[in-house]
Design a protein around this nucleic acid. Structure first.
Length: 279
DNA sequence: TCGTAGACTCGGCGTC
DNA sequence: CGCGGCCGAGTCTACT
């Protein structure tokens, strides 16, 4: 289910568990996981003998740095998640939708489970990484220091619904449907408010709410509605803190007005019609 | 009025 | 039917 907090939670857990372990082999079972069909068949040979030396994140992308200098980039899309299995467990014991596994020489493994098979992986040479993100025009990470109040306001100055802008990964990278709704509720901004007509004060509120809600999501270990799990199999608990997402008809935590559901940018959108006034 | 960029809409992608 | 993500194709519209 990954948005920025779930990806960050995953990255932090994986750093503790898989860095420095020697890779014995790898197998992919969903051809669409790798765009490159040759790589799909040869991923075992490609990774054998290598080690993960660092794990980074940009928006919703994970970057697995390899000692060989290459980078394996992964995107979990809607239902993907990484799990680390120890040598005693069988893969099927911890998940039945494993599409890709990297086996370590010590008997453990890194598993990528993805019910809907929307996830994607790329294995890139060092010089290919910058162009990978340039091609996608990916914006700065939502929590990076580059995304200041002034910068965010400038990026939101367009004639589009602010929610649609927040979901646009070229504006700022990492925000998805849950955290967009939650941060707009926190900032008291209507999801259909045009970016162009945001006041300076409103832009500052959005910036503050964005950082606050993403940090809270990380602190909670992510949101575990449906099938998102942390790499140890446990659940995050941000769903306990949700104010509006998928709470249509339930009372707004601030004013008790029933939460409304509309569709913005083809995505279910939840807001308080009293707290979040339209322009 | 024309051309263009940007915005919007829809369908698709596997699965439960 | 819905869904946390995102892409491509096609269409519309607003501006210069």
């Amino acid at each position: 289910m990954p948005e920025l907090p779930e990806v960050e939670t995953t990255v932090r857990a994986l750093r503790k568990k898989i860095l420095g372990r020697k890779i014995k082999g790898a197998v992919a079972t969903a051809p669409q996981l790798f765009h490159d069909k040759k790589l799909f068949r040869n991923i075992g040979r490609a990774l054998r003998g290598d080690k993960f030396s660092a794990i980074d994140r940009h928006g919703k992308y994970l970057l697995f740095r390899l000692r060989s200098g290459r980078t394996m980039i992964a995107h979990m899309k809607l239902t993907g998640h990484f799990l680390v299995k120890d040598k005693k467990q069988k893969a099927n014991d911890i998940h039945k939708h494993v599409r890709f596994r990297t086996d370590f020489a010590d008997g453990g493994a890194l598993l990528f489970s993805d019910l809907r098979k929307f996830g994607r992986c790329w294995l890139l040479a060092p010089n290919e990484v910058p162009e990978f993100f340039d091609d996608r025009k990916l914006g700065h990470d939502a929590l990076s220091k580059e995304v200041s109040e002034v910068y965010l306001r400038a990026k939101l100055r367009r004639n589009r619904a602010v929610k649609s802008l927040l979901l646009d990964q070229t504006v700022v990278a990492g925000i998805g449907n849950i955290y967009a709704d939650e941060l707009l509720w926190m900032a008291k901004i209507h999801p259909l408010h045009k970016g162009l007509s945001l006041s300076e004060h409103e832009a500052v509120e959005i910036h503050k709410a964005m950082r606050d809600i993403l940090h809270r999501g990380i602190k909670a270990g992510g949101t575990s509605i449906r099938d998102y799990r942390k790499p140890d199999g446990s659940s995050g608990y941000f769903q306990m803190l949700r104010a509006v997402y998928q709470r249509a008809g339930q009372p707004c935590p601030r004013c008790k007005t029933p939460i409304k559901r509309i569709v913005v940018a083809q995505r279910g959108t939840h807001y308080c019609p009293k707290c979040q006034r339209k322009n």
